[in-house]
Design a protein around this nucleic acid. Structure first.
Lengths: 206, 206, 206, 206
DNA sequence: CATGAATGAGATTTCATTCAT
DNA sequence: AATGAATGAAATCTCATTCAT
């Protein structure tokens, strides 16, 4: 079936990634055998290995993508005008997370990628990039918080970004592992702590 | 009626767990072979299997313990008098995390346990307990924040706990994966966001 | 009725054999994959399989050729007039061997063909032919040795040919595997043992 | 079955080597699968891999041994008193070769080892050692030939050893591949060429 | 005539676990 | 109680070959 279109090749590649994502989300990187991926994709061993050099290659491709959409959602949200409050921002992100957290959802790969990064130096590279990218978004957001006067001009922006970056994995873990949290609750909690954009903010505190 | 003392048995058991923890911290649950544990512990296969029914049993024992000390540290801190500010509290916890995050440290097991929980229902049970226990501590702390007037009486305590619980895994991931954060920075960020116990709190906001 | 010329077909065939010979000389029959041959020849799988039914076919074609040139050299030398001494003959052959023993040289296929012949009955056929052809040359040479009076008339020609035939593989193995022998040394050794054509021959022996 | 005797371990090791030798002699290194060795030895995969790190390890162990007995036979023969004639010596060796050349005989591994040495640098090491050891024996023999006056005092011993060393592989190849030669014929041929210890030696030549 | 994507059997090796000693 | 030899299923990956285009 040679001399196929570029598009055909890309479709095959995606077919494999889709199958692998389902398998990984269900069984994890290690417990998923290549045979699982062959079966799920409907392709033969040789076919899969034509598109990916190794299982690690497939994992790398997916682990890199796992949180891309969530980050994109965050980027869009934080750049909207007027600046969303922290509660609004986190709610948008949390909703994206929930949407992609079903039994087969790509978000389930994120904790596995974190675990992998502690073990495998190759994986550490790209997982590090992902986490850093997330923190960069928060950094940008905190800058804008300063701009609009929600935080003082002398704010240590990096320090604040470091603190806030935990909101997303914190929600992911609670959602994926315990499963009893929802974006609204999270947003309400954040609004209570960071009552920007509300007249009653921290009134007790004064 | 055993020939050896109860104490001897307990010591052997701990010997195995210590060895396994080092191995797991270095290579992860899956990449660590039982042989690795035999070698590290200096015991034979038969000996290890006398104390633990299976590899999963060892993982369960360790994954349960992984964050126990960090939680204890948190419990102690939040019950001290006067109530620590969020920044003080998180700094104490983060310092405990850092201390236990060396190349062999038990904290490295936590992300692996999270990943495992998504895959293995048995593991999900005890990991869930661990995460819930952490959230319960935050719940208790938020209650006290209300008591001392840092948050309004009608605060949705559960929602705020849900939000704050991410601070610790957020820091752990940044520390373990990227490695460029420290407790002081985190505390400063938290102090900026939640400026309790400081006269200048959110003054920009009014 | 082919669309392309006979010459084109032959050229393609040779192109494949040339590529395969390089691969086989470098990596051996088994370690060379068909993909290696595709790459080296610049042809596609389909193209190669149009000219050769199987990998074994290519091996057969090359293993047959491997020592043809060396045998031709021997034939020419032994038929020259006057009859070369054994030392002269072996030196000519050894020089041909050395010339064809570089990293990619066809002589490197010979030991592989011998090994293959012990395993594969098909290969045994043509390798047997090659070895027999070599022995026939020696047979012819020994006949001429008798003719010129270097060996007695009642010489068991076949027995002598059997003995001498080892000189070439013996040199090949030492040259290919150890690499510290040269045609001159070999010739000197032969001249010492079989001092024909020299006045000092076996003077110790008389 | 632990805490077994040293002897038991050695027996197991030999059991594996014996099985592997049969397999390799019959099918060659590559065509023999590890499964073949498991079956032939009656051991499980795990058992075999306890004693040998890899298939290459087994090959190395056997390829090293393949010609040891033949070399020992040669050593014994050449050191006997009085010095055997070349014909006597080669006949003894050839008989040893024939005895060990049956369908399962270890001598069948020698050509395979030669072929392997051209491809695999690891194998080249030990095969080189084997070939060199063989040449050293011939070197020793040629020295003694000089001592007893069969060759002149100014003989280039190394050159002569280089020439004679081919007698054994030459016979092996003819015997293994064509199968129509026998030690007596070979000895007769050598006697004709190197007529030491006989009154009629090279009489034609004078 | 030529392409090269696809096949799928089969190769080597590892590993958790058992149990005779 | 302790040993460690043995098991054998399963994992990843390769490769000669085919055939639709």
């Amino acid at each position: 079936m040679p001399r196929v279109s570029e598009e055909h090749l890309e479709r095959r590649r995606q077919q494999i990634l889709d199958a692998a994502q389902l398998c990984f989300a269900r069984k994890g990187f290690h417990e998923t055998s290549m045979q699982d991926i062959f079966s799920e994709s409907g392709l033969s061993a040789g076919a899969v290995y034509r598109y990916f050099k190794s299982k690690d290659d497939i994992i790398a491709a997916l682990a890199t993508e796992a949180t891309v959409e969530v980050r994109t959602a965050m980027t869009n949200a934080l750049r909207s005008d007027p600046l969303p409050t922290p509660a609004q921002l986190i709610q948008v992100i949390a909703e994206h997370v929930v949407e992609r957290s079903g039994p087969d959802g790509p978000v389930r790969l994120a904790p596995q990628a974190w675990a992998l990064a502690l073990i495998d130096p190759k994986a550490a590279e790209y997982v590090k990039d992902g986490v850093r990218a997330m923190r960069d978004r928060w950094h940008e957001y905190v800058e804008r918080m300063v701009e609009v006067g929600w935080l003082p001009p002398d704010t240590d922006i990096r320090a604040v970004a470091t603190a806030t970056v935990g909101l997303v994995p914190g929600f992911m873990l609670q959602h994926l592992i315990i499963g009893d949290v929802d974006p609204e609750t999270l947003a309400r909690g954040v609004q209570t702590l960071l009552p920007f954009g509300q007249p009653t903010a921290h009134s007790v505190d004064t």
